[in-house]
Every structure is written in C-alpha cells, then in structure tokens.
Computed example of a mutant assay.
Amino acid sequence: MADIHVEEFYRDVAIALSQLYSAFPRRINLFVEDIAGPDEPDEFGLHSKRHMACFGALLWLAEEGFLRYVDTIRQEALDQAVLTRDAFIRLSSPAPAALAELAGVTPDESELPPSVRKDLSTYIHLIRQALRSGHSERIGAIVRAAFFSTSSW
C-alpha cells in the first residue's frame, strides 16, 4: 500500500489529464478545487496541505512535460493549460490487454465495431474507468503504466 499522499497524487494526475484530454486542443483553466475538492484558506490566507499537494502535482506535470500553461492563477489554477503532444499521443494510444483487465475493462470484442474496440483500449479510457471505480490502487497502476513505466518519457 502506497503512502496516502502518493495515492492522492495519482488521483490528481488522472483527473487533470482526463480534463485536459476532454478539452484538447482547447486551452482551459485547470482549477485545483475541481480536482482536489473545495478548500477554505485559513485566517492567514494559506491553503490546506491537500490543496497545495494538488497544485504541486499540476506544476510537476508541467515541469515533466505532460502539459503546458501560460500562467498560474494564484495557487488556485493553471491558466490556459493544454496537453503536450507527447501526453496526447500517449493517452490516445492503446494500452496492453493486461492493463485493461486490471482496469476492469474487458468488452466483448465480437459485438463491437473495430473503432469502438480501439477507443475502449486507450489509456485515457482506462484512466477514466479507474477514476469511476474510485479504487486508488487501480488508478495508481494505470497512471504508472501510462506515463511512468515507459522509456519514451
């Protein structure tokens, strides 16, 4: 079992990538509250550790070349964020069948058109399925497989 902050990191990454993919190629404002939930700054105006961890995850995604953005909106959002070319290609790529089984995605291929089978096998589809399941180990495994277990990154 991973540390809770690592599980939250994978969840934050999965949600952010899903939001960016859904809007691609349009640039969007990526709000921390939409990913980590509502946050009330304390009496000094400081955000919670959870909020700052999510904001840090978004900045890390940019530093590692998964997304680009124009500016930050305080510590609340990334302004004009968009997936990089490599992140878009990776999310659109078919995932290994074993990973689809881990995500609980095993469509009956005989009944589906080839284009639908192809869409259901992509990393972004598996990430979305894992998010719907709410299973943190599954989310982490899919995010790791999609982005961190490849030599091309």
Rank of each mutant, 00 (worst) to 15 (best):
Leu17Glu: 00
Ser22Glu: 10
Ala23Ile: 13
Ala23Thr: 05
Phe24Lys: 09
Pro25Ile: 11
Arg27Trp: 15
Arg27Leu: 15
Ile28Asn: 00
Ile28Thr: 09
Ile28Gly: 02
Leu30Cys: 05
Val32Ile: 11
Asp34Gln: 14
Ile35Ser: 01
Ile35Gln: 01
Asp39Met: 07
Asp39Thr: 09
Glu40Val: 15
Pro41His: 05
Phe44Ala: 04
His47Thr: 08
Ser48Thr: 06
Arg50Asn: 11
Arg50Val: 05
Met52Ala: 06
Met52Gln: 04
Ala53Met: 07
Ala53Cys: 02
Gly56Tyr: 04
Ala57Ile: 05
Ala57Asn: 01
Trp60Asp: 00
Trp60Ile: 01
Trp60Val: 02
Glu63Ala: 01
Gly65Leu: 08
Leu67His: 00
Arg68Asp: 09
Asp71Ile: 11
Thr72Glu: 09
Thr72Tyr: 11
Ile73Val: 06
Ile73Glu: 03
Ile73His: 02
Ile73Asn: 03
Arg74Gln: 08
Gln75Met: 12
Gln75Trp: 03
Gln75Gly: 02
Ala77Pro: 00
Ala81Gly: 05
Leu83His: 04
Leu83Lys: 12
Leu83Phe: 02
Leu83Ser: 05
Thr84Leu: 13
Asp86Ser: 13
Phe88Ser: 15
Phe88Leu: 10
Phe88Pro: 03
Ile89Tyr: 06
Ser92His: 08
Leu99Gln: 09
Ala100Gly: 13
Glu101Val: 09
Val105Asp: 01
Glu109Trp: 14
Ser110Phe: 15
Glu111Asn: 10
Pro114Tyr: 07
Pro114Met: 08
